[in-house]
Amino acid sequence: MVVDVGGKVLRPGVLTLPAGSRVADALRAAGGVRPGADLTGLNRARVLSDGEQVLVGVPGMPSGGAGSGAGSPGGGAPAVPLSLNTATVEQLDTLPGVGPVLAQHIVDHRVEHGGFRSVTELREVNGIGERRFADLEPLVRP
């Protein structure tokens, strides 16, 4: 799989890692994090998805990196499509029609199935019907 690691790492860039690699593996492959980088909120044990971006210690970005979908200032819909594979319950809760319970269902589905390979898999989540899927489809990515 291919991931993009950036921010406060020693060798940022696009890396090829074995399937099933975790955030910690990507950080090691990027030469490790720079001294003083804030890793609070970065789940180093999380399994990565192909095409994901991991940003470390970038001001104004959520701890999971841009790949997790940065919310727009002042709330509302995300400024960029939110990653179903990296977004937290709190980030998913910002999507229209998604509350904390549905956000947790999305995260649970992600964990149980090893991540989302396409946005259409969102339809398999308990509580997401055709109308809600239609509303969410342009706001999210795998």
Results as ranks from 00 to 15, higher is better:
G57V: 07
S68W: 00
L92N: 03
V89I: 13
L55E: 05
P142R: 00
S118G: 08
D38F: 04
E137L: 07
D50N: 13
L39Q: 05
G31S: 09
V2D: 07
L136E: 12
A77K: 06
G76L: 04
V47Q: 05
G99K: 12
E137D: 10
G41W: 03
V80M: 09
R11L: 00
G97Y: 05
E130H: 00
G65E: 00
A24T: 09
G74I: 04
E90G: 14
G20P: 00
L15Y: 00
R22E: 15
A29G: 05
A29C: 07
T40H: 10
P96H: 09
A19F: 12
L15H: 01
L10Y: 10
Q53S: 12
G115K: 03
S68M: 06
S49P: 02
A24V: 02
V5K: 11
G115S: 10
R123A: 13
E112C: 01
A134D: 13
G36K: 11
D38Q: 08
G7H: 02
E112H: 07
P35M: 08
V111Q: 15
F116E: 07
T88C: 14
R123F: 08
V80H: 11
L82D: 02
N43Q: 01
A19I: 10
R28Y: 06
A79N: 04
P78M: 07
L136V: 14
G60I: 10
R44E: 14
G129A: 03
L15C: 04
V47W: 01
L136G: 12
S68I: 00
S68Y: 03
A45T: 13
L55V: 00
E112T: 07
Q53I: 03
G57C: 13
P78I: 01
A45W: 10
T88K: 09
E112Q: 02
L42A: 11
V119P: 00
S21L: 11
G7W: 02
L136W: 11
A29T: 07
G74H: 07
L84S: 05
V47L: 02
Q104K: 11
